[in-house]
Design a protein around this nucleic acid. Structure first.
Lengths: 250, 250
DNA sequence: CGTAAGGTTGAAGTCTATCAACATTGGTGG
DNA sequence: CCACCAATGTTGATAGACTTCAACCTTACG
């Protein structure tokens, strides 16, 4: 495992077999458009913990998360950090038209990205409405998620924040596995306590305490530090302060 | 002033003279496209405090803020509320493709909106790339603003939050008046203490105390409750925890 | 002039941060 | 194979920031 993995993968992969084909920025493309994308794309993989892009760096590419999880974070001069985006498979990274990155992008787990060279991608945005339309749709979804997140950050208690985060992850995990929300949900947390704290505007100690409290109260079950079972999703939503179905639908 | 102002204005207004012509969703339209927009548009005005749309209501229109300020807010069952958007002239309201409103939209000041009937506007999004392109650009800007706001909500102290909000309003006000950020800045707060609290995830008492503290420390000057003078903008940015130019650029 | 809405200030209480010690886990090298 | 180390996580005690509850002030308006 000492091989440097931050490297361009020279495997050529067919878009037709791509696991995010129907959800990513290319979702609406016809075969001609896919062909053009194919010509400007390449894959890169990153190990957990690696930084994909530093805030302020020149962006050479935009792209999609194929597998794994990445996070967008902002850092203040004195070191306080806030996560401002959690990027899951099919999510888009980068802003067409912008020269330099506005946030740090970090691989939270091992990560594979499908990258597009930025200049040709921008041209493609102008030429093919399908890409621009899909990107608009995805950006509007992200804006909704950001706004839900603002309610969590501004008005929820620590306990509610943890419950909100767990419900979001549980929901996304269930949707990835194509299963419903009934019965008990089982998944692995993709975030460390510190990353959860950065997501929620808390300290890692408070995160640890509130996770323990939810476990003690039977809202969740914990095996090890990461493996989580949710016996009753409705109960978790109550703890999150969400009514019946008020959560993020992603 | 007892005339009900929540009414359709029957003044026909020419897009060519529109104060937000070059910044709103129609910014890139040519005269043909403008003509099509003109056919589906109407103006509505609202008094300060009036609700434009209730969360969950069916959306009959989307539109642009022409003058005044509107806010997007979310409310939890127990009444806790968080502002998730502050809409200034040229900002866009509504989401094409969505049936019902996701947030409460409230007129924070007297407000005039340019509304487009939703169905024809959605058709126009498909037909004319200029509208969709501009909306994408505006949505990306809003997403950036939301992420900056998340840092404020998650990691800043009450004092820093107030300073951040004042710097944002000062900046936008200066840009509206087409003046730079040098010299002293003078403006009127468009928000009540309660609205500021809802924006910042604080109580109105804390807002009042921190505004007083910034005044006591000479960071701002106050005349009455709303009229604000900022003698040294760089000082305000320091208080906000922003370095040199790290603020929102809107 | 009286009232209501918006705003200020004070005192007490609560929640979360901070500081610190300790536990657990996985990997590395002797 | 085991010991050690670093990274991650837990738990406790204390401190501090913000909220809550309450009284009071200011302003505009009918």
């Amino acid at each position: 495992m000492n091989k440097l993995k931050d490297d361009i993968l020279h495997l050529s992969q067919d878009c037709g077999n791509c696991p995010i084909r129907h959800r990513a920025v290319c979702a609406r493309c016809d075969s001609d458009e896919l062909e053009r994308l194919d010509q400007i794309k390449y894959y890169r993989s990153f190990e957990a913990g690696q930084t994909v892009i530093w805030s302020g760096d020149r962006m050479e590419f935009v792209g999609s998360v194929v597998s794994g999880i990445a996070s967008l974070t902002q850092t203040m001069e004195d070191g306080r950090t806030q996560m401002v985006g959690l990027l899951l498979p099919s999510d888009f990274v980068g802003r067409p038209g912008r020269e330099s990155a506005a946030y740090d992008v970090v691989a939270t787990t091992d990560l594979v990205m499908c990258c597009f060279r930025k200049k040709p991608f921008e041209q493609l945005m102008v030429d093919t409405p399908h890409v621009a339309q899909r990107l608009l749709e995805m950006t509007l979804d992200e804006l909704d998620a950001a706004r839900e997140w603002m309610l969590v950050l501004g008005r929820k208690t620590a306990r509610e924040k943890i419950a909100s985060l767990l419900s979001i992850i549980a929901r996304r995990d269930a949707s990835l596995k194509l299963q419903g929300m009934q019965g008990q949900l089982v998944f692995d947390l993709p975030l460390t306590r510190e990353a959860m704290a950065d997501y929620l505007g808390l300290t890692l100690e408070t995160v640890s305490r509130q996770v323990s409290a939810l476990k003690r109260d039977g809202v969740i079950q914990l095996e090890g530090k990461r493996h989580i079972t949710i016996p009753d999703f409705a109960r978790l939503l109550e703890e999150a302060g969400d009514d019946g179905d008020g959560g993020i639908m992603v």
